Amino acid sequence: MNPAEPAAPETPTDTTPTDTVTRPRRRGLRTVGLIAVAAVLGLVGGTAVGYRIQADREPTPLPALNQAGLAYPAKPLPKGEGPEPLSAKEDLQSKAQGDLRKLLLPRPKGARADGKDGWQPLDAYADGFTLPDRALEDELVSGVRRIATRAWLVGEYKRIQINLVQYRPDSRLGAFEHTTEQQRIAASEGKSASLGHEVKGSTNGRYYIYPVRREAGYLDAYEARAFIQRGDIAITILMYDTHKIAESEIRSLAERQLGRL
């Protein structure tokens, strides 16, 4: 061999070309892409056709907002053909516009009157609160109209007081605000065993029973309260005794007083 000549390449023992190795084909991707494109085109085309059909149609008129059946008659109904006025029993508001004192529960047999019975001045009513000046201002702002009160004694120590506080019709929900505020105070004082119990027949009335208060040199003190709203009237029932107050007693008082309204 001539040393100047290049050496001949060695013949590979493996005759299979390395750059022609077969790889698995990723089937389906192109087919899925074509289907997706076709679906989009079909959706766009269908929407366009739908708009075109709707545009060619005559507009459908909407029904009238007013209903002839609800219109008032052009002339008053003949005498005797109009609706009958509500009776005093059916017209609940008529009760509240009458003598409010007549809606107070009567004193039970054998009970003795204790304090004011009937109309109560606003300043005297406010004096029953911890902060009389603040209470007076709040009631005036809330549009208080009049207050009817009845209190009585049973035996030597049991005392019950009921207040019906009525607010003006154009006031800002005075009865509702008064009732909810008194309930909030009753629940936050920490003396009530619970957040109160619902008064049957009311929308937001609740009554509270407090644990006994004991202090050296004094008789045990028990207390129960009820706060109920009925229209523009806020009902407050306060009960004090030196013996335990039964839940049924304050509940019955609350339900019966609400029933009179």
Rank of each mutant, 00 (worst) to 15 (best):
M1W: 06
P3M: 00
A4Y: 01
A4G: 04
A7V: 09
T11C: 00
P12K: 04
D14K: 02
T16C: 00
T16V: 15
D19I: 04
L34G: 06
I35E: 01
V40L: 14
V40D: 02
L43M: 14
V44D: 00
G46V: 02
V49N: 04
Q54L: 14
L65Q: 08
A71H: 05
Y72H: 06
G82F: 07
E84C: 08
P85N: 08
L86C: 08
Q97K: 13
L100T: 14
L100F: 03
P106S: 01
P108G: 10
A113Q: 12
P121N: 10
D123W: 11
A126Q: 00
T130H: 07
D138Y: 10
L140I: 13
S142W: 15
S142L: 15
S142F: 14
G143S: 05
L153G: 07
Y157M: 09
G174C: 07
G174R: 06
F176C: 00
E177M: 12
H178K: 09
T180N: 05
I185S: 13
S188C: 02
G190M: 08
A193I: 14
A193V: 15
H197N: 12
E198W: 14
G205P: 02
R213M: 05
R214T: 04
E215Y: 02
G217K: 13
D220I: 01
A224T: 01
A226T: 06
Q229P: 05
D232H: 15
A234M: 04
H243Y: 05
H243M: 14
A246D: 15
R251G: 08
R256C: 00
R256K: 04
Q257H: 03
L258I: 01
G259S: 11
